[in-house]
Simulated assay, not measured.
Amino acid sequence: MGKRHVRKMLRKMESGEPVELSVSMTTMKGLTRLAFLAQQFGYEYADLNQVDNRFALRIVPDPSREGRERAARNRERYPDARNGGSLPPVAPDEAGLLKARMLFDLGRQFTDKQRFALAGIPITGMVAGIGYRFGDGTTGVVVSVGVWAALMGLAYVGLVASRRRHVRYTAQLEAAGFTPVTDQGGRLRYVPPGRQLPGHGNPFA
């Protein structure tokens, strides 16, 4: 994640209002770095979703005493951060937990059934195109059914792998003392020890 995105985020944070960043062509490492830096300057990670081919990262002001003190220290140490100056170094352990939390949230955007159905829509469309190319003959039907079954099988394998990753993220977060909570939409989330979901008891969110 380049300094341009960091500058843009820090300048938006000057409003003191919740900020949503729409980012494409990035990696989880880059998104985690953005969220980590936001937490160094008075904000906290709130949520991560994917819309089409873009990620929507939401951050909100952190009203906690610890958050305010950390922000004050970092504004003093890195006064030119918003203009492309030096930035706080990323702490690997803290960033690792933040990444696990973000990936857990991203994976909970849809249920397993919804993800399987969403995968099936483009697969079915592609297979229909293959069938059209072969015409209405038996060969076209056999090829189309075979391709559809193979691709849906791969989609199921991907779903199983996703479940295993979520088990790993859950174990990592719970071992660090993170607490499972349910948000207003019924989605399971994890919050740091002693904290609430952003927006619950937070006068700034």
Rank of each mutant, 00 (worst) to 15 (best):
N202A: 07
G131A: 03
G30N: 12
T124I: 04
T179W: 13
N83H: 15
G146E: 04
T124A: 11
Y45K: 07
P18R: 06
A35T: 06
H200S: 14
L159C: 03
M13R: 02
M13V: 08
V127I: 12
R195M: 13
D47A: 14
P192R: 03
P198N: 03
V6S: 08
T138W: 04
R101N: 09
P63L: 13
S64T: 15
V23G: 13
R168A: 10
D80F: 14
F36R: 01
I123K: 05
R189K: 11
L197R: 06
A91G: 05
R164M: 09
R54L: 15
V6T: 10
D47R: 11
R7V: 03
T170W: 05
R115Q: 14
R189G: 08
M9N: 03
Q172D: 05
L97Q: 01
R82H: 11
D47L: 09
G120E: 13
E174F: 13
N49Q: 12
S86K: 15
R133P: 00
A38Y: 00
T182Q: 12
D112H: 13
E66G: 07
F36E: 07
P63C: 11
A150W: 04
G153I: 08
V23Y: 11
F110R: 13
T26S: 10
A100H: 05
S22E: 11
K8S: 12
R54M: 15
G140N: 01
A171S: 10
S144M: 14
V160N: 01
L37T: 11
S86A: 15
G146Y: 02
S64R: 13
L57G: 02
I123P: 00
P88G: 04
Y190A: 03
I59S: 02
F110Y: 13
V143D: 05
E20F: 03
A35M: 09
S15P: 09
N83G: 15
V145T: 06
G16I: 10
N83P: 06
F178K: 02
L48G: 03
G67R: 09
K12E: 14
R77Y: 03
Y132D: 00
P192V: 01
A81L: 04
Q50W: 04
L159T: 13
Y78T: 04
L34A: 12
G42Y: 10
D93Y: 02
Q172R: 12
R7M: 15
S144I: 05
H200D: 14
D105F: 12
N83V: 00
Y169I: 01
R68C: 02
L188M: 10
I59V: 15
Y190W: 06
M126D: 07
M9W: 05
R73V: 08
L188G: 01
G186S: 07
A81M: 06
D183G: 00
M1E: 11
L98Y: 06
D47M: 05
V90D: 01
K8H: 12
T182M: 14
F104K: 03
R75D: 11
M126K: 08
F41I: 04
A71P: 00
S64W: 10
G129T: 00
H166F: 02
E66Y: 15
T124N: 02
D112T: 15
A91L: 06
L118I: 07
R4G: 13
A175S: 14
D47G: 07
A175W: 14
N202F: 05
P203N: 15
P63N: 10
L154H: 05
I123C: 04
R33T: 11
N74I: 04
E174T: 09
A161P: 02
